[in-house]
Design a binder for these strands. Sequence first.
DNA 1: TGCCTGATTGCCT
DNA 2: GGCAATCAGGCAA
Length: 221
Amino acid sequence: MKFGDVNAVRVPRAFFARDTALVAREMIGLVLAHETREGLAAGVIVEVEAYLAREDPASHAFRGQTARNGSMFGPPGRAYVYLIYGVHDCFNVVTRGKGVGEAVLVRALEPLVGIELMRARRGVDSVRELCRGPGKLTQALSIGRTLDGADLVRGKLGLWRPKPASSAIEIATSKRVGITRAVDLPLRFSAAGHAFVSKPGGATSAFTRRSRSKERSDSAD
DNA sequence: TGCCTGATTGCCT
DNA sequence: GGCAATCAGGCAA
């Protein structure tokens, strides 16, 4: 497989069947690609977050398996796509093993191939804004809930490893974004200082929703 | 059965 | 920088 000038090999299932935080970290620099009738759209992963099972209250798997999160408990190397805030789709990669319930959320990409297609889907011009955010990249790559449970090791949607590997990416570890529970766990990984990362640093931005401002007063920087 | 929350985004001021 | 949009799962009554 070639993405522009970049040669790449498909990531095997064994890659995903490991510790979730480790998989998340090593996903930085891989290529996420989706081929549709409209054409190929692909980008380099620059930001992810790991979601664990029982010990992680912020994870959808925390309360056990349900109809919605079923694919999160499926075999590793599958997609888990869900609707957030009734508006946006988020794309996750299932890790560990069948029945465990852990996954990695892809939060941002650097567009690589199919940029005009992404522009048309997103309705914005700026390359930087095409895939900078979990809801944005699913729109840019046309990843919807119909792809929930899709096998990423074979099929039109999947992950590829550039060869040779992208020269030494420095990986920053920080707190996860946009959650209200287990906010201190260092499970967010990003390409350090990368312009396409969705939120800077590690500080969780203050959330502002309805009557939920209880005891929040700790705004970093 | 009905209400509340949430791994977000983009518009408005 | 603040806040509305909008849908489905989870939980209380």
